[in-house]
Amino acid sequence: MPLRLKRLARAGLYACLGLLVACSGSSSPPGGEGLRSLLIHFEVNATPQAPYVDLAAGEVFFRFEGDMVASAVDPATGQVTGKGSKSLGRFGPAVVGFRVNPARSPTSSDFLTFRCIDCSIHFADGALLRPLLPGDATIPAGEPLRSSAFDIPMQGHFLQNLGVLSPQTGGIGFGLRGVGCGGTQEVTGKGLLAGGRGTICMNGQFDFSSPSPAALAQVLAGFADGGDAAEVAALLQLLAGSLLTGRSDCAITVQGQRS
């Protein structure tokens, strides 16, 4: 069959499937019934966070905070076309650690990872998302639902192995893709996500303002034969020494209690 005919046939098939699905009247959250899901877009700025740098652990710390709105999606194609105009609240403060693993090559997504140390998301409808913290004995007032018997640690990865991107904020520097999922829970019993427990998954970009891509390449070249303490320190200094911003569409999906 000629290629054009094949494409037409495939487009026809998808159109038919589309009609079938439309007729089925599905309107459940993307994970199925019993779940509550949001797709938000956040834009955050970072400031250095004590203890700033832990050379022994190969980790540098930031505090992120910024606005969040809904992601805007073309309902015909699924393409994310931008963002909504209505503020949904405040993303952060989120204390995040970026960790270098010199045992892995920069070609691996395990070379540079990130984790959420203490993250908050404040929704305008009163919902407050906090990490799942097992054994947390210091529950602040206003977070009555916070205790948890288990954890879902954030597994964040920088994708420097996909190359560098132009900063989304413009200007000099470079952007790196960042992805990851971790656990979260709504702790006030208010809002759309009231009392729910589940996950948050980001699929976005971090922008570093000051170093050039060439400077990053120069530092990463030092890891060709496995990085030593000096090379880890050089990379941490590069990461910590610039203004840092982050942008991402972010899926939040929870289950359980709703007040």
Binding site: L38, L39, A70, A72, G84, L88, D125, A251, T253
Partner: peptide, 9 residues
């Protein structure tokens, strides 16, 4: 996505 409240369906 409903841009008024971010609900994802």
């Amino acid at each position: 996505v409903d841009t008024s409240d971010a609900q994802w369906r």
